[in-house]
């Protein structure tokens, strides 16, 4: 790794941590109903929304009502997004005349955005109208992110309230998340990104005349779409001369801002943040990267503040950072080292004043290996899923890092709530096991951890590996699953594993070598995304309901402090052991064996 690369990573992390306390404090105030500097501006809009939706903001809900409200809100939004895509051909704001989206693809996309996954089987600029992008995808970006934060806030109330049934009001938590947190941050970021060159327009795509016309040979096909062969059995072709290029534009900046801030990740364009209109400059890259970690890092402090013990938040932040730093080091290190087979061919992969060096396949020249690998690690640590390079082209071990970050549950940092409530489930498991080892009743933040909470935490921890591994097994075992693979050998296996890892974790990033827009991946993927999201949220809210009903036990001599270095290290050990037990065998079949074969000089054709 180069010294300038290390410096860039350090600057990024320092800037992220500078925002942790102020933003974390602000978010805690929002959710606790305290007055903030935005109340005068946003307060009337908030109250108006409650009035027209007939919501009583004072009405607290038990966990069952909270969960049903969340599910109803999600499924209605999902059906609306599905309808919007199917009807976009007859709806306005469609200057390119995009037709109805295929049912299977529309279903996958609707599920994907309802679950905050934002898996991209669609190609934004070739599939969706401006209305579908704005009123469909962008709106879901806001609401699905706010739902994730609402679940965390409900869980925090479960931990802090005493002997009550209610865990808050879902509608109030969601509205506040959108109006006071996501919307203001998105407006600021959208303006900054537009300043950096992202389009923000409703004009049709532009047509440009090429300065250097080009041509290519296009195969001639028959009525069935099969290539027509000549007398020698070779495919007949015709020469196509290209003199013009269509340049896709649209309301990009407004969608990009929430795409990163809400850890959504679904791009306006198919190439996501590798596209020059989504991420044109190194500074826009820095802003977007910062936006990915901004709320996830700050929400850990929010957690500490809301449980009335900021040491708890700092301890979890430390545990997350302990997992995050080595991952960055491995991903950047292997990408900067380059492809070992290229060295023997005499290819210069050394960083110099003339080139960034390293493995540049699948990467944008303006970002290079460091910013690409840093992004890949960051986007999979949180549940973001946007990409600025193609992970399929990474060296095997660097390509494994994003998978590992997702396999750990995307708990680094707290996501928009999702990573944080998964982390709390892991803390419960860690506290329980520690309690068993010393023979004391486990407790966390003064609440006794009993059989029900452990069962729920176990479901939360096991649902993700189950859907990922079963989905991968289906992908490998069926012809429909294997048909999407574009590489033979272990790399092809990695493509399937990555796809189901990403969908099962509601991440949304892609290895990019897999053709996912097939009925198999659209339909099975939708099921995996739904189960990965809501079969975790329901037990998390059940834990909240169960804990809220309990009394608080004052700390005693037998209480395990959960803010000490000892507990942080124990928590990291539990996270790594659970991740390794679940996923080491499949990683051995994919990236690990590919790395060993690559270093031995074996490739697959």
């Amino acid at each position: 790794m180069t010294s300038i690369g290390i410096l860039r990573i350090l600057i990024f992390l320092v800037v992220v941590f500078l925002f942790v306390k102020p933003l974390g404090t602000y978010m805690a105030k929002v959710y606790e109903g305290e007055r903030t500097f935005l109340h005068r501006l946003v307060g009337p809009l908030e109250r108006w929304l409650y009035r027209i939706c007939a919501i009583d903001p004072q009405a607290d809900m038990p966990w069952q009502t909270y969960t049903i409200a969340l599910l109803s809100f999600t499924v209605v939004g999902m059906l609306l997004l599905y309808a919007l895509q199917r009807l976009q051909g007859v709806l306005p704001l469609n200057p390119q005349g995009m037709g109805a989206v295929d049912p299977s693809l529309a279903f996958n996309t609707a599920t994907s955005f309802a679950t905050n996954t934002n898996w991209q089987n669609y190609g934004g600029e070739t599939t969706l109208s401006y209305l579908s992008q704005m009123a469909g995808l962008t709106v879901k970006n806001f609401t699905s992110a706010a739902v994730g934060m609402a679940v965390l806030v409900a869980l925090i109330r479960g931990l802090t309230r005493r002997s009550v049934k209610a865990i808050g009001n879902f509608w109030v938590d969601t509205v506040r998340g959108v109006l006071y947190i996501l919307m203001p941050l998105s407006i600021v970021l959208a303006l900054l990104l537009a300043w950096q060159g992202l389009p923000q327009t409703l004009s049709p795509y532009k047509t440009a005349t090429l300065m250097e016309p080009t041509s290519y040979e296009q195969p001639i096909t028959d009525a069935n779409g099969k290539p027509v062969l000549d007398a020698k059995g070779q495919p007949k072709t015709k020469t196509i001369k290209v003199t013009e290029q269509q340049i896709a534009i649209g309301p990009v900046a407004s969608q990009l801002a929430i795409k990163e801030l809400g850890t959504n990740g679904g791009g306006f364009f198919n190439a996501n943040s590798a596209h020059p209109f989504e991420n044109p400059t190194p500074f826009s890259n820095f802003l977007e990267l910062l936006a990915i970690l901004l709320i996830p890092a700050a929400i850990v402090y929010t957690y500490g503040r809301m449980v009335k013990d900021t040491r708890q938040g700092w301890a979890l932040l430390a545990a997350m950072t302990i997992c995050f730093l080595p991952a960055i080091g491995v991903a950047v290190g292997f990408e900067q080292a380059g492809n070992p087979l290229f060295h023997s061919l005499g290819v210069d992969q050394t960083a110099s004043n003339l080139q960034p060096g390293g493995n540049m396949e699948g990467k944008e020249v303006r970002f290079g290996p460091v910013d690409s690998a840093l992004w890949a690690t960051t986007t999979t640590s949180t549940s973001n899923g946007s990409v600025n390079s193609m992970h399929d082209s990474y060296t095997p071990i660097a390509g494994m890092v994003p998978m590992v970050m997702m396999h750990l549950g995307e708990i680094i940092y707290g996501g928009v709530g999702t990573g944080m409530y998964d982390m709390v489930a892991l803390v419960i498991v860690a506290a329980f096991v520690a309690g068993l080892m010393v023979g004391r009743t486990p407790e966390y933040l003064g609440k006794k951890i009993e059989a029900f909470e452990m069962k729920m935490a176990t479901i939360v921890v096991l649902v993700m590996p189950a859907v990922v591994l079963v989905g991968t097994a289906l992908g490998v075992a069926t012809a429909a699953g294997r048909a999407g693979v574009s590489n033979p050998g272990p790399h092809g296996f990695s493509e399937i594993l990555y796809a189901f890892t990403s969908m099962g974790n509601n991440n949304g990033s892609a290895f990019a070598g897999l053709n996912g827009n097939t009925p198999f991946y659209n339909d099975v993927g939708a099921v995996v995304m739904w189960l990965g999201r809501f079969w975790e949220i329901v037990p998390v809210l059940a834990i909240a309901g169960s804990l809220a009903a309990k009394k608080v036990v004052p700390p005693g001599a037998g209480t395990l402090p959960t803010y000490t270095v000892q507990f942080v290290l124990w928590l990291v050990a539990v996270i790594i052991i659970l991740g390794a037990l679940s996923f080491l065998p499949v990683l051995a079949l994919g990236p690990i064996v590919e790395h060993l074969l690559l270093t031995a000089g074996t490739t697959f054709k």
Binding site: Q64, S72, F107, D523, W535, A542
Partner: peptide, 30 residues
């Protein structure tokens, strides 16, 4: 799959979670 089948699958998603809420509620009550 056709529109109707996919909408039915969406509702199945929803009710799978409602069923889960009901089951966990009973488990909690024990």
């Amino acid at each position: 799959m056709a529109d109707v089948e996919l909408i039915a699958l969406t509702l199945l998603f929803f009710f799978s979670c409602v069923w889960m809420v009901d089951g966990l509620d009973r488990l909690m009550g024990r």
